[in-house]
């Protein structure tokens, strides 16, 4: 292996590394501005006061933690991190709302099935009285 060959390999290696790093450069996921965090903070406060907070406690925990991290990223001027966290928090809030909705629907369905079961029992009792 000659020195020239080693130089070429070194170049190729550097090129690959640079290419890899460029490919891995995280683009801004969503557009955010100076007020995005505050709007997000208000949305989180609103959702904490709603019945969603009781229905999806795990998501609320993630949201709270990520909001702190977003605040820190904003303070650090890390826009990309703030944008990713903002997007994840919004996603978590959507999931929390969906979970609350599903939980509510589940409860409604259980109640309705109980009601149906009771109605069927009552109907059977009535039918037993019929000739």
């Amino acid at each position: 292996m000659t020195i020239k060959t080693l130089k070429r390999m070194n170049f190729v290696l550097c090129f690959l590394i640079v290419t890899f790093l460029v490919a891995c450069t995280p683009p801004t996921v969503i557009d955010i501005n100076e007020d995005t965090f505050y709007q997000l903070q208000q949305q989180v406060e609103d959702i904490k006061k709603s019945e969603v907070a009781d229905a999806a406690p795990m998501e609320m925990k993630f949201i709270t933690e990520k909001l702190q991290r977003a605040k820190q990223a904003k303070a650090n001027g890390d826009i990309r991190e703030e944008a990713r966290l903002t997007q994840q928090i919004r996603a978590d809030m959507t999931i929390a709302r969906l979970r609350a909705e599903v939980n509510g629907l589940n409860q409604k369905l259980l109640d309705k099935r109980d009601e149906l079961s009771a109605a069927r029992t009552y109907l059977q009792q009535l039918e037993a009285q019929l000739p």
């Binding site: 891995c24 995280p26 996921v29 996603a91 978590d92 999931i95 629907l105």
Partner: peptide, 28 residues
């Protein structure tokens, strides 16, 4: 790749979870 992919995984899981819960909600 990298951090982007981590975030992408998170968001993909979000979309999958959202699809599941939306389906579950509609089914319910």
């Amino acid at each position: 790749r990298g951090e982007v992919k981590n975030h992408g995984v998170y968001m993909a899981r979000y979309h999958l979870t959202k699809a599941k819960m939306t389906a579950e909600s509609a089914y319910l």
